[in-house]
Amino acid sequence: MSSMQKHLEDQIKLAFNPFYFEVINESSNHSGPATESHFKLIIVSDDFDGISLINRHRKVNELFREELSHFHAMALHTYTREEWSKKQKAPDSPLCHGGSKS
């Protein structure tokens, strides 16, 4: 496991007390040399109860403000426990087009 992946996991645990979460390093699915450039986060937490999708994402963006400035992409999927019990799965991430960091 990469150190960035562990860092993201530790921060999510501390910040959201998640019922369930996954940090997936998707960097190898993409062209380009970077190995810690694309991450997908799934977070299921009671902290999201009654909170709009955009405000859930704002909380995560805020937590990872510094990290995001170095990533090419961070796919974000946030659910309440009830939403997750119906879904059990987050959408797949798209593949990038091209390998430039932009």
Partner: peptide
């Protein structure tokens, strides 16, 4: 105050990024 692209606006207000649009479709 949204760090990533794409960004989607409805009636001049940010709705979110691509993941949010996909969740809304689902």
């Amino acid at each position: 105050d949204w760090p990533t692209f794409p960004q989607i606006y409805f009636n001049s207000e940010l709705v979110g990024g691509g993941d949010i649009i996909v969740e809304m479709a689902e």
